[in-house]
Design a protein around this nucleic acid. Sequence first.
RNA 1: GGUCUCGUAGCUCAGUUGGAUAGAGCAGCAGCCUUCUAAGCUGCCGGCCGCGCGUUCGAGCCGCGCCGAGAUCACCA
Length: 593
Amino acid sequence: MNIETFISDAVRRSVEALYGELGDEQLQIQKTRKEFEGDYTLVTFPLLRRSRKSPEATATEIGEYMTANIAEVRAFNVIKGFLNLSLDSTFWAARFAEIAADEAFGQAPATGRTVMVEYSSPNTNKPLHLGHIRNNLLGYSVAQILAANGHTVIKANLVNDRGIHICKSMLAWKLYGNGETPASSGMKGDHLVGKYYVEFDKHYKAQIKELVAQGQSEDDAKKNAPIILEAQEMLRKWEARDPEVYSLWVTMNGWVYEGFDVTYKALGVDFDKVYYESQTYLLGKALVDEGLKKGVFYRRPDNSVWIDLTADGLDEKLLLRGDGTSVYMTQDLGTAFRRFEDNKLDDMIYVVGNEQNYHFQVLKLVLKKLGYADWSDHITHLSYGMVELPEGKMKSREGTVVDADDLIEGMVSTAREMSAELGKLDGCTEEEANAVSTMVGLGALKYFILKVDPKKTMLFDPRESIDFNGNTGPFIQYTHARIRSILRKAAEAGIDFEGVVAADYLPEEIDLVKTLTEYPSVVAAAGENFAPSIIGAYVYELAKQFNGYYHDHSILKEENADVRRMRLQLVRQVARVIRSGMKLLGIDVPERM
RNA sequence: GGUCUCGUAGCUCAGUUGGAUAGAGCAGCAGCCUUCUAAGCUGCCGGCCGCGCGUUCGAGCCGCGCCGAGAUCACCA
């Protein structure tokens, strides 16, 4: 049974019995705040012009009617214009029984909609860093949440595997690499390629400096440095499929993919489809022709194609270069078009940093102007803020980027040290210790990042992220582990706690049941807002509530067998929902820690 | 300059789409391990919700205007 529907129906019936038909007027019903007595609250202010009475009198009148006529309403109290309704504990017992019996609790029925979530989208010239971690965690989690909301989800990764930046790494490797490979150097493939990207930059800068010393302007020097000219030549050769360049490209990208796979696996993210720009970068030109024909685009004397968006408060935007080659926007138009056609998508979600807000604004507007409003309206740019460090922004030249692999390793090893220090690893096999440290270290990292509203710029403080106390992933994992421990001990003691118990709940037990029943609507809200942070806040709240309860009530030592059984069931359900919520965040929960 | 985002406790962040006395964690202070895991629990301290108008019975949330921070406005992707 949907509780919110039940309450609002009951209230509506009562209000209409007293004051006549409401029509499509909305009733304002909310959960009663903790500091007041009651379960649900009706805000009576909007009803005053119908009742023609004071807020207090109106609330009292409705409250009296409901206690008399609605069986589930046990009592009420009125504070100012707020009518607080208390439901009978048998009502909550019935809701709990429903939840406990529902194997798919929190999983919405299939909607028949297909939605693609594109995330990660790395460049193949350097390893992943902290910014990519936020992207990957968000993308994966949002995909999980949408799936829980009943959508068919396609997780897609569009790899930027071509362009001048890859040629820079390739050229530097060719010039200075001495045939170094991941195998020969022992380096992870993406790091090796990244090393040569940095190497290129070093030589490039040196050459610019030299040319400037010879009297060239800074701008000219940047264009004329031999190494950049050579890289550009390499790109031309690549486009012409020069065998030597092409095979080097295949080899080095292969190294990078092997490296990325390791990082993705460590992060626990995966993809259903991987697209490569080298295969899609020519798409979109047909759309340009179409736009020209429709008069949406125009051609300049140099043959380049543009769209004028100044009437929409934006600028003029280039769609095709004078030489007929495409730009980023052209490709994205083409790939968007093709995605919708090939996969029969209902929605398309791009997880891309907020530095591209303008790009997506333009993309959607152009599609709309071309007459594809249907698609345009179903494109969502899930824009997330930058991750900053205590010392400021990450700058690759200043060496302040936080490498993804280093970070993960650091979190896991810290988790291990702290676990060992607390004696949590005593009696564990090496394998178990590894598994727990990995889950805890990554849990800390993932939760730390996902608990923040995606659109906000966030601060990543390494010291704070490694804190396992308070509002953290490990705290939630720990709560789960403790519940599992209780359940293990109950099983060992041969306590049977299957079957429904009509419970006489204590107030804090009803609070737990109430929080449990909210889970499906939290999942729905998280899906609607593309915000895993909503799930995070909920799971944390549930865990915290349980911890308070846990300290006040002995569960295994409860003498009344029915009460003990009821409590074990309740506690087991809390563990289930914690595990389910954490799964939506892509966070594993250990059985013990 | 145009467009967009953000501004809540010393710090990091919530705030369920306009409701009651604005909440957590960290840091600080005071307690709690003979009891199912102390990665825990209980209490205290800490607020001009950037500022000002407006809409409303009611604004941290909506509108307008300022102030501050950031992103972007490339024949880069």
